[in-house]
């Protein structure tokens, strides 16, 4: 586990006053005294739980906000791509990005929408490029 941060829990005024009353009657073994002490204990536990709920809830909110930011940023990228018409070379399929710079389609997408390409060969290209070799191999 990572080391936890030291927490400062403000002592509730009610608890402070109740402790004061208890200290004044600490010698008494009355039923009222023990009931009061038990109630104070429950109240302190409840306060601790409330503090815990707030702490955890705040952390969930931060997590949610971070996710929202990520989604908004992805949406902005998507909208940007939807609005543009990409100029593409009709022969080599490079994309013209800014300043008359022609970029490989793979690097363009990797840069702009974080899409990575994995290279393979489709059946048509396999036939066109290696058809003869494959035919010879079969023979």
């Amino acid at each position: 586990m990572t080391p936890r941060k030291e927490k400062t829990v403000m002592k509730d005024t009610v608890v402070r006053e109740a402790e004061e009353i208890l200290s004044l009657h600490s010698g008494e073994a009355s039923l009222l005294y023990s009931k009061f002490k038990a109630l104070l204990h429950d109240y302190e536990k409840l306060l601790h739980k409330l503090d815990k709920v707030i702490t955890i809830s705040d952390k969930y909110q931060v997590q949610l906000m971070e996710k929202t930011d990520q989604l908004n940023s992805a949406l902005a990228q998507l909208n940007q791509l939807k609005k543009i018409i990409l100029p593409i070379c009709m022969f080599c399929k490079k994309i013209r990005s800014d300043a008359d710079y022609w970029q490989q389609i793979e690097s363009y997408f990797a840069e702009h929408i974080e899409v990575m390409f994995s290279h393979g060969i489709c059946p048509e290209c396999m036939k066109e490029k290696y058809g003869e070799l494959l035919a010879n191999h079969k023979d």
Binding site: M1, T2, H48, I56, K59, Q63
Partner: peptide, 15 residues
């Protein structure tokens, strides 16, 4: 992969 999730888990485990 969620950097906050471990912290949250530890928060629940703490007491």
């Amino acid at each position: 992969e969620n950097p906050r999730a471990l912290d949250l888990a530890e928060e629940f485990a703490e007491d």
